[in-house]
Amino acid sequence: MSVLIFIDIAEGNVKKASLEALTYGAKVAEQLGTTAEGVVLGTAKDDLSSLGKYGVKKIHHVNNPSLDHLDAQAYTKAIAEVAGKTGAKVIVFSNNVDGKSVAPRLSAKLKAGLVSGAVALPDTSNGFIVKKNVFSGKAFANIALNTDVKIIALNPNAYKTTAGDGTAEVVSTDIAVDAPKVKVTAVNKVSGEVPLTEAEIVVSAGRGMKGPENWGIVEDLAKALHAATACSRPVADAHWRPHNEHVGQTGTAIAPTLYIAIGISGAIQHLAGVNRSKVIVVINKDPEAPFFKAADYGIVGDAFEVVPKMTEAIKKIKG
């Protein structure tokens, strides 16, 4: 018996969301009195044994370059095989891009109950119950998993990474891997940019910015904070910003520690995608803007004056 954690790699490096999944999985293993093991698919540049500091004892590395790009079918088969070998009873994913693609397939393959979007450790006092987000962040559901093998996909930024001591034993696992049917022909990564779903801080702006030519001050603030940038739906619809920046009920749902909303009214559909943020700051010239009701800190003022001042103040404290 073990808890198996899928460790997700991008260009050879372990993703931040996977470190959260590792920390979480190690904690679940402790809860169940068993050990945590990890599985890595494809080429890895990072030193995998160092992942032991997140509490994982052993890492199964399927070091096969045909797994360098996500193919849900091939990944599912490989993980199922490793899960079988290790007698995994709980399999943990991050509910990120790879997790959303692979965890449901694995659930169907193993007939293992799946909780996607988990936000807390399982409650094992009476059965096995995992809390997840529902209704786009407006509520939680406690999901009972009754199957022998259970799968949890942990929401990014829902569980804090903690590192201790320890190294993991890395074992090369030679299993038959299917040739991927999904052939990746181009990768367009905005380099140097913080991925929105992994970002600790997100600076977001809405129609109050008046036009795409005014985004400079938003980007400057984001840069000063090492933050990702986001926007409201009408801004993406008008092509002022790329559609992958659209957050909300019908865009990306995020849960950063700090969300700064500039010139966004705070419509219910917008809030649905950002209300899991730990701290919300709203800058809006209208004191009646609904967003203030969901905010922790607010400034009623003109974004074109407030935002540059804020960037200056942050640069000052950061030195």
Binding site: G113, F292, D296
Partner: peptide
Amino acid sequence: LTGIANFELPPAKAGVKLIS
């Protein structure tokens, strides 16, 4: 494979702190 034990609503926000 799964069942819903129950639902919960998130705790209400404490209220906004306004800064000049």
